[in-house]
Write a protein that binds this DNA or RNA. Structure first.
Lengths: 197, 197, 197, 197
DNA sequence: AATGAATGAGCTTTCATTCAT
DNA sequence: TATGAATGAAAGCTCATTCAT
């Protein structure tokens, strides 16, 4: 017998170990160019053993995408919990920019989206998470602007907000040396305009 | 003997034929999951013959990326040639949105960017084209607002403009059923704010 | 401490448990396509534990073949112990036919024979059991026909008898819907002829 | 361009080359223990190239089984074309025996039947060929005995005939050193009885 | 210009087996 | 006695690329 929970905990840790390794590999080479052998090397685990935790490469990709979407929801939660959403969004701009430029998340995000564009399983995960974000931000936004009449084009504004922040990952690839301060200021100007009634 | 130029023309047509086929395949399966066999089938050409026109798969990818960037410059030229850039940009919003949602270019764009995030050769092509776009739009914008003093954060505004339009490709994946009209209006509101002094 | 014999008994039961599970798996997928994991699942026992009772997959196969041959000897004993061997054989025909058609033993028998055709260890087990059967049936037959002079071609008749009954397993595969009564009658006619002096 | 038919002929020859190699490998190790690498080595062809001619290992197995069944039909045709079927069958006994004992076809036959017992695709091929044999032999037998009234238990007799000849492959494994002459005589006795009205 | 036969490395995946607990 | 985590070799299969024709 083993200590209660010990087995499950270890199994979970092993899974995370694989996911971390796979994330690194996928960032470097993309989903399809990264090999199971490379992942196993990075995870410090034999190839065969990975199959004790994941049914295949597809399952690893799916798990990573899920984790990635989870993180998006968490970032979003951090913003929404602020007392003034508009201000929080505006203030988030520089951080979002930095995240896109420095964080290694950008390339992986693009990889995920490219995959979602052809893999229905990935697509539905991505879309569910996105719908959740829109629902949350939307309701917070509604509550925040409750006094000043209904906010026109709420859905459209949410879309544009998503395009703006998501688009930063694209800018990070297209122009990694961009002027951060200037861009942050322009972002803030635009976000401000987006939240006006 | 063949008429002068005929050979070259035919060769060019053959190349385009391969690129069209490859574009279709890459859209369906991504750069790495699409096989040369599939491309050759789609192009109606033997596998071996493709190697008369391209040194390998990498070269095909590069050529496609180049073509894609060229198209971006052309779209951009269309906008810039309008007498009033601000208005042209605002009016371009619905078309850009439609392009992102309906056109099959979205998935490929994401594929290209994901590839650029790890392949230096692709990256430099993407960055050069992007620099050119910024240069052009920037100078047009400068000229347009010449009367009203210098436009603060010009570079930042260009980045945000790029993020906004690029971000539409992301929205198309994350929420393909988005409300187009509402989104177009929100876009126009944001573009307007972006061009104000 | 455990009661004397209890340990051995339990170990034997465990072995049988494994053999039963393996038999089921081998029937379904054959010797080489069945996996130890599948056997362990079917046996309700961990993979590793099976190795306490058997040195490996080969040993399990060997044990199953042995058990199978043992059963053949038992069936044979049942026939031989009858007062009139000839009649017993004739009467055995319908039962042998049913056994081949309904029993799950047919496929496994073919699997064993196919394996024997290339695995010397299996081959020798199969051949020893077969030799024993021929010896027994032969001597009983000799005793039964002692009065009426020597039985010509005794060995050949035994071979043909074996071919006939063994051949039923083949018929079960080649024509599982065969007319049982008609076939049983034809078998009886033929066996009768085989035992005539 | 290539000489008319040359391409097809060569492709067919290549396929045969693979089938011959696979037959040898399957005889030695069985369907599942023989590897594509081994087959490719035996065929003097790269692994990958085999896949130009066969969609996979399963397809090779199926093609071999088909070929094997075809051979059975040919042997059968040889017998049926004789003026006196009864006599032809009786005279075929020693040859059938020799074929089972010396020919390398025995092991493969058992392998095929074992596979048929679990693989539906193989099963249906085997059963179709068998049905055809029964149809042919049956009608010939009917014609031969037309004068002497209807032959009772025709189907049963055909089954037993099949069991008898098929059973020889089993005898070849169980007792490869059997007395051929004695066995041939016993077979002839039995066949004779089987054809009597 | 054009074919597709041919290669062999590399892919994902499975498996029998071992061993620390 | 019993587990299942862990291994590594080998499996079937795919692929970009080359080359004789």
């Amino acid at each position: 017998m083993e200590a209660a929970g010990g087995v499950k905990k270890r199994a979970h840790a092993r899974r995370e170990q694989v996911l971390d390794a796979a994330t690194a590999c996928f960032r470097r080479h993309g989903f399809h160019a990264a090999s199971m052998a490379e992942i196993s090397r990075e995870a410090g685990m034999s190839v065969g053993h990975i199959y004790h935790y994941f049914s295949g490469k597809e399952a690893i990709i799916a798990a990573i995408v899920e984790r990635e979407q989870q993180e998006i929801l968490e970032v979003d939660d951090g913003i929404r919990s602020q007392p003034d959403l508009g201000r929080a969004l505006v203030e988030h701009a520089p951080r979002g920019l930095q995240r896109a430029l420095d964080g290694a998340s950008g390339p992986l995000l693009l990889e995920v989206l490219a995959e979602a564009a052809r893999n229905p399983a990935i697509a539905s995960m991505v879309r569910e998470a996105d719908a959740e974000v829109r629902r949350r931000i939307g309701s917070t936004l509604l509550a925040a602007t409750a006094g000043s009449g209904e906010l026109a084009d709420l859905q459209g504004r949410l879309e544009v907000l998503g395009a703006l922040f998501g688009g930063l990952a694209i800018r990070a690839v297209r122009n990694p040396g961009l002027d951060r301060e200037s861009t942050a200021r322009a972002m803030q100007r635009v976000i401000g305009a987006l939240l006006e009634p």
